[in-house]
Simulated scan of single mutants.
Amino acid sequence: MIDARKNDHRLLKILIEPWVSEKATQVADKSNQNVFAVMPDSTKQEVKAAVELMFKVEVTSVQILNQKGKAKRSGRISGRRKNVKKAYVCLKSGHEINFEAEAR
């Protein structure tokens, strides 16, 4: 029982934020997928369980990618953006995540 609570606590921390971009919006409209920024040490199974727990939807598949931060320069000052781990979550047909309703 204690392990299950720890697991649920971890699942609530897996999803950092929804990823909002033109490509993410096109993917959501075209193939019923949502994109999330996730913790760097998360797995596909954890992401699937976290989405199902938080949004009460059924997930069919999860694709994960690691995006390296871009090198940026401003004059002589140079640096890098943070590395990001993203998850493309494919939902079962008939299910959708409405972020506006979830925020209230």
Score class of each variant (00 low, 15 high):
71 A>N: 10
100 E>F: 12
16 I>H: 08
44 K>G: 04
30 K>G: 14
17 E>F: 06
5 R>K: 13
88 Y>H: 11
19 W>I: 00
68 K>W: 03
82 K>S: 14
1 M>C: 05
15 L>K: 06
68 K>H: 10
14 I>D: 02
11 L>I: 08
31 S>V: 15
9 H>V: 11
91 L>N: 01
98 N>T: 07
42 S>F: 03
72 K>A: 06
84 V>K: 13
73 R>K: 13
46 E>M: 13
33 Q>A: 09
32 N>L: 05
50 A>V: 10
68 K>F: 08
74 S>Y: 14
36 F>T: 00
96 E>V: 10
77 I>V: 14
61 S>T: 10
5 R>M: 14
83 N>F: 05
5 R>S: 13
16 I>N: 08
87 A>C: 13
58 E>M: 08
98 N>M: 06
38 V>A: 02
79 G>M: 12
25 T>G: 06
14 I>H: 02
94 G>S: 11
55 F>I: 13
24 A>T: 05
69 G>Y: 01
92 K>M: 06
62 V>A: 01
90 C>E: 14
19 W>P: 03
17 E>V: 07
4 A>C: 07
101 A>S: 15
28 A>G: 12
81 R>M: 13
16 I>L: 15
75 G>A: 06
47 V>Y: 03
26 Q>I: 15
87 A>Y: 01
17 E>Q: 10
70 K>M: 00
71 A>V: 11
36 F>Y: 02
28 A>R: 11
81 R>C: 11
34 N>G: 01
